[in-house]
Computed example of a mutant assay.
Amino acid sequence: MTETNKPLVLVTGGSGFIAVHIILKLLENQYRVRATLRTMGRQEEVKSMLRAGGVTRFEDLSFVQTDLSSDQNWDQAVQGAEYVIHVASPTPNRVYKDENEMIQPAREGVLRVLRAARNAGVKRVVLTSAFGAIGVGHQHHVGPYTEEDWSNTNAKIHPYQKSKTIAEQAAWAFIREEGKGLELATVNPVGVMGPILGNDYSHSNTIVRQMLEGKLKAVPKIYSDYVDVRDVAELHLLAMTRPEANGQRFIASSAENLSTLGVAKILRKHLGEDAKNVPNRELPNLVVRVSALFNPNLRMIASLLGQDMSTSNEKAKRLLGWKPRSAEEAIVATGKSMMKVIKGEMR
């Protein structure tokens, strides 16, 4: 395949944890990639993370400066792209005056990208949504969540999760009403673990870091499913290219429900002396809820206490042949690579 025959994929939010792994997977599979950045000064940081992932040549990678809050450069960003993988999203602001500070930018950003993609003749957009758009706000839900489920935005849920739900719903409405043939698929990851390639990593990875550094003396009683970021990237490519994926949502999950203490036990089992500070006890729910009244950083965590957040990954496996790693493998990969970050061995 010649350079000019390689399909071009636009990846938004190119410096993010998931996005970098998607770019890695695209380059490995002979695609040209154009990545959006809010600040062009982060190009070398992205390349450094890609080098850590094994990339040695960058002739198929380019960058363009965009922002989800502005129309500027989006037409240029999508020009010539066959596919768009829209990963960029406003980050969770835990100190907020109004929930619309998170909801409006997420919704408007998705619509801005879809509009530009449609106008440029892009074939398909893959939207990185979240479990937060599927399984939140249901007090008495029993059994694993599937792609048929939507979070209850009428319940008292964290604005970040509400923003992911409303943004994805807006995307599907746009496709129905204004898409004019533009295809859409969404990937909804649970807690994302896996190899860290630099200093940009997910919230789930942050909790692992806090455990390893001894900043958490005990952990909240939250039960979650996890997925390896490498498998999330693989699922994005399947959702991008497979005809069966058009118009579908896919939960990215290993479908193994673990407590936060279960994650801690895996770290202690595999990391030896590096895990000496990892906690081995749980916080009472009441302590977390009371603390959240005074600490905004704990409000999302408090809202998830006692919730069944188990998921099914049957659809992605059946329809696309997706084969995720185990949660244990993903968590160990996070722990080992996080120790390199903590020790200053990764820049």
Rank of each mutant, 00 (worst) to 15 (best):
M1T: 13
T2M: 05
T2D: 10
E3D: 14
T4L: 14
N5Q: 10
L8F: 08
V9N: 09
V11P: 04
G13T: 08
G14A: 11
A19W: 02
L24S: 11
R32L: 04
R34P: 03
R34K: 12
L37G: 03
T39A: 14
T39D: 15
E44P: 00
V46R: 10
V46Y: 08
S48W: 07
M49A: 15
G53F: 05
V55G: 00
F63R: 02
F63Q: 03
V64D: 03
Q65V: 11
T66N: 00
D67I: 03
S70E: 03
Q72F: 04
Q72I: 10
D75M: 11
Q79D: 14
G80K: 09
G80N: 08
A81D: 03
V84S: 01
I85A: 02
P90F: 13
T91P: 09
T91C: 11
R94Y: 15
V95T: 14
D98V: 07
N100P: 00
M102S: 05
M102L: 14
G109H: 11
V110C: 05
V110L: 05
R112V: 05
V113S: 09
V113A: 13
G121N: 05
R124M: 06
V125C: 06
I134K: 01
H140A: 13
H140M: 06
H141W: 14
N152F: 02
A155V: 07
K156L: 09
I157N: 02
T165K: 06
I166A: 05
E168M: 12
Q169S: 13
Q169I: 11
A171S: 10
W172L: 09
W172N: 08
A173Y: 04
F174N: 12
E177G: 02
E177A: 10
E178S: 13
K180A: 10
K180C: 04
G181V: 10
N188K: 04
M193E: 13
D200F: 08
T206C: 05
I207W: 04
V208C: 13
M211G: 00
L212W: 01
K215N: 12
L216T: 01
V219F: 00
P220A: 12
P220M: 08
K221F: 01
R230G: 02
D231I: 11
D231K: 08
V232F: 05
A233P: 04
E234R: 15
E234I: 10
L235A: 09
L238E: 02
T241H: 11
R242T: 13
A245I: 05
Q248G: 01
R249Q: 06
A255I: 12
N257Y: 01
L258Y: 15
T260F: 13
L261A: 02
L261T: 01
G262I: 03
V263L: 12
K265N: 15
R268A: 14
R268I: 15
G272F: 12
A275G: 10
N277R: 15
V278D: 02
N280P: 01
N285Q: 09
L286H: 04
L293W: 04
N297E: 13
R299F: 08
R299A: 08
R299W: 03
Q307Y: 07
S310T: 13
T311M: 12
N313K: 08
A316I: 12
L320A: 09
A327G: 12
E329S: 15
I331T: 07
V332I: 15
A333G: 08
T334M: 03
T334H: 04
T334P: 07
S337F: 04
S337K: 07
M339N: 14
K343R: 15
G344E: 07
E345W: 06
R347M: 13
